[in-house]
């Protein structure tokens, strides 16, 4: 009985942390979904897009970004143009990107800082493969432990 009470308390505390984070946190890192929901209200606002943002297409000074089914345009300022020209040459289709910028009319984003996550897709697949290895190791060790007992 005591175990169940402790379990419920721990789960309730986790739910409370999660709710608090969901209610207070979104002011700090935004999603494209949030930007598209309130386009008029976010002009001029600083945003940072980090979670699973991909470059759909790009040209000399704009990018079309996609995050979780929503798309938004981003503009490269003159200050970052030379760096962008170098990066553009190596960019892979659907490359992951993180960026920070300011929302402008459109809505679109004027980029202030960005980072291309090269090989991130490979990293995700490698992590999944590692997870399978872990499952195999755990099953093997659990079985060995049972045999010893």
């Amino acid at each position: 009985m005591k175990t169940w009470i402790l379990l419920l308390i721990a789960l309730a505390a986790l739910a409370a942390l999660s709710t608090y984070s969901a209610m207070v946190g979104p002011g700090r890192v935004d999603t494209v979904r949030e930007l598209m929901r309130q386009p008029g209200q976010v002009i001029g606002q600083q945003v940072a897009l980090e979670s699973n943002v991909r470059v759909v297409s790009h040209d000399a000074d704009t990018l079309l970004l996609r995050q979780g089914g929503e798309q938004i345009r981003a503009r490269i300022p003159v200050r970052l143009k030379s760096r962008w020209d170098e990066d553009r040459a190596e960019i892979e289709p659907r490359e992951f990107i993180s960026l920070r910028g300011r929302v402008i009319a459109g809505p679109a984003i004027e980029i202030e800082e960005y980072h291309l996550h090269k090989d991130r897709s490979f990293k995700i697949w490698l992590s999944l493969a590692s997870l399978l290895v872990l499952v195999a190791v755990v099953i093997l060790e659990w079985w060995q432990e049972r045999s010893r007992a």
């Binding site: 986790l14 942390l17 999660s18 608090y20 984070s21 969901a22 946190g25 979104p26 890192v29 999603t31 494209v32 979904r33 949030e34 979670s51 699973n52 943002v53 995050q67 979780g68 995700i124």
Partner: peptide, 19 residues
């Protein structure tokens, strides 16, 4: 967060020492 990016703040506490 990969499948549903807007869930970042919901799951974020699970990557903190207290969570």
């Amino acid at each position: 967060t990969i499948v549903l990016p807007w869930t970042f703040w919901i799951t974020m506490p699970f990557h903190t020492p207290i969570g």
